[in-house]
Simulated assay, not measured.
Amino acid sequence: MVTGKKRTFVLYPSLGVGHLIPMVELAKHLLRHVHIALIAVANPPDTDAVSAAAVERLAAANPAIAFRLLPVPASPDAGADWVKRDLDTLRLANPVLRDFLLRSQPAAALILDMFCVDALDVATELGVPAYFFFASAAGDLAMFLNLPYLYPTLPPFRDMGEALVRCPGMPPVRAMDMPLTVQDRDSDWTKVRMYQFRRIPEGRGVLVNSFAWLEPRALRALGDGVCVPGRSTPRVFCVGPLVNDGSSTTGSGGRHECLAWLDAQPKRSVVFLCFGSKDACSVLIALFLYHQFY
């Protein structure tokens, strides 16, 4: 990724608060490296009140980050499940994103949420380097990149029960513990997810919310290209851990009280779970940590 002088990065989260908040933490990281961070938020007419309030709150709390709402038409298939509806909405956002990038100052890169894969077409048209931001563990990334190639050789996960799924870079995971959106191989949910996972390698690179000491096995698999057979794997950049420093919670910038509790626990006795709004990535993180430390 381009470094060395002050540059503008446009961050493009997927729909929902669970995708917006990690992008804000990445924007803070870019600001600490003296870059300009601009978050473009797709804003369809059916945006829920929680998401709208979150954008307003985050913008007020982070005045150094520029937030821009992109008005997007609603998905024409209002009765579709939320996975397909979100994909349709993000596709409808492409012309609006394109116009926004053309009007804005030149961007050094467009940083995409893992589900905003169709924005790659806009980046290619405009000649803007596109990177993905993967807010979960590198082990999750290794598994998800491998699923489009592995899954056609397996029964649906929902039928495999406790049988183990083996992906490069990850300890075996029970099929029943895989995310809900990929349980049925022939469902629309899974087809959307496989399409998204298959397109991620088209980016220039992937920024992952992890660090080398924590996940050497997964990062080695990603670096060796074994997760994406038959095609090149984009370079993976560890930018983690990206976490809120807690200063806004205490109100005074002081040390959060939970840290005192953590300091009092025996070494390697705590597993951290951070649940998102819809997907089950945190389950995979927990499984990874369990196999890593126990």
Rank of each mutant, 00 (worst) to 15 (best):
V41D: 10
R255N: 09
E56C: 13
A80S: 15
V50N: 14
R68N: 08
L289D: 03
Q265T: 05
G4C: 09
P13K: 04
G127C: 08
G225R: 06
R268H: 08
L101Y: 10
D186P: 03
K84F: 11
P152S: 01
L120A: 06
A280W: 07
K267L: 05
P71M: 02
R85I: 12
I39P: 00
M143V: 09
G276K: 04
D81G: 14
L154N: 07
E125R: 10
M23P: 00
E162N: 14
I111L: 03
L112W: 06
L30Q: 03
P129S: 01
E56N: 12
K278M: 06
R103I: 02
L147S: 01
G203K: 03
L101E: 09
V206E: 01
V236M: 04
C116Y: 03
L150H: 07
A218Q: 08
P73M: 15
Y131T: 00
E56R: 13
V17K: 07
G240C: 07
P266Y: 15
A42R: 07
V270N: 04
A53D: 15
R185V: 15
F197R: 02
D279R: 05
D279I: 01
D263H: 06
C281V: 01
H29D: 06
A280E: 11
F157C: 11
F157E: 05
P229W: 01
A119R: 02
V270Q: 02
